[in-house]
Design a protein around this nucleic acid. Sequence first.
DNA 1: AAACAGTGCGCG
DNA 2: AAAGCGCGCACTGTTT
Length: 461
Amino acid sequence: MIPYTKTAVKLLMEGAKALAKVEGDGIRMDVEYLDRTIKKMSQKIQDLETNLKQNEVAKEWRKVYGAKTNFGSAVQLGKVLFDVLKYKSSALTASGRYKTDEATLSSIDLPFVRDYLEIKKLQKIHTTYLQGIRREIVGGYLHPFFNLHTTRTFRSSSDSPNFQNLPVRNPELGKMVRRAFIPRPNGHLVEMDYSGIEVCIAACYHKDPRMIEYISDPTKDLHRDMAMECFALPKSEMSNPTDEEDRKRIKQIRYCGKNMFVFPQFYGDWYRHCAASLWQATKQMKLKLRDGSSMRRHLAKKGIKNLSGFEEHLKKVEDFFWNKRFPTYNQWKKDWFRAYQKNGYLLTKTGFICQGHMRRNEIINYPVQGSAFHCLLQALIWFVRHDLKKRKMQAKIVGQIHDSIVADVPDNEMAEFVPLAKEIMIERLRERWKWINIPLTVEIEASPINGSWADKKGIKE
DNA sequence: AAACAGTGCGCG
DNA sequence: AAAGCGCGCACTGTTT
């Protein structure tokens, strides 16, 4: 993929300059907190390891491997569990070895395996995040790199450390890491997030009227609707929560619809794979109905008794999704792929050409992923190279995560900064790129004054 | 010692 | 007809 039009080249050049400024400014870090937490974490992991090594399974492991024993080796673990102890292996890797990822291992009901997974998780936090970040801090500031030249789709990437994959989905671990990121004195860390930008940008390509309706009407909710269809639930089960717990229950089911059906389908997944993850989720996430009965039981009542029955059901859901619900989107995918087959390249809305040997799913996804990021990049360029400078503001952009921008804003500039952010990211962008014919929305969260990134909350506007 | 493939896992 | 897109980092085990 190479930049094609003049405007695309300009976007990359200005983007590189803006990001260089972001890298140079850096983000302030709470080094004392980090050092303290690294120490605590090392101790905790060491204790858990000592415990693990006394387990019967560990003894068996040593019997097999002797001096070569390495509790960090997933290959050894696989042999011990599946060859020696004869547990049933449910999946193999691409090269035919036993799979030992969390999804596979969590089905084995052994204290050893549970503890092993717990240690793994903590080790990831310790080495990749806490230590990995600490190593890169200079003079109290962290300067992650943001690259525009590494990615197939002309998104960005980040490294040393990667600022774009800090933990967040697990709230406890997310907070532990994000607590280390702080604003400059008397400032706020502010995160501005384009909501559902890839879905919006996809709609600018395919222009499916029913999808546009979903995006434009705030009372509509595609993820919830698809969760309902996937699990054969009536609307009453997914609306008007009775209490806080019920709200969480609905949220979990919606999460499954979003991340195990809707997004995978957009990216070119198919019903069997979706069925497998959803089916597993009913058990692993212990999905329930309002009366407390299990999702599996509910499905059984609907005549869906096992995975293959669920696959059949998902096949119908998928068919309806593409052929009845979003036929225009479906047709666009076909036409878009055919055009690539004929021409040998594709052109994105932001002026980039992708060429070379690509698979169908790549053809569908690259233009969307790239253009969505370019919206963010253009906004970031305006912030860094135009508006903040012109207004002589002290606010700084300190990072970027594909569809969100992180800024460090002095308390006395907040009232100016927030409306400016909305103006740049929504109005000005739509003015510049007329092909964006979908309303964009931006969610803004901020830390309290002098508070860390872990404490960010939605702000009143 | 450095490079590489394979695996797993963090994020959008 | 084919069958999730894009990244970076740590670690193991092998090859150069």
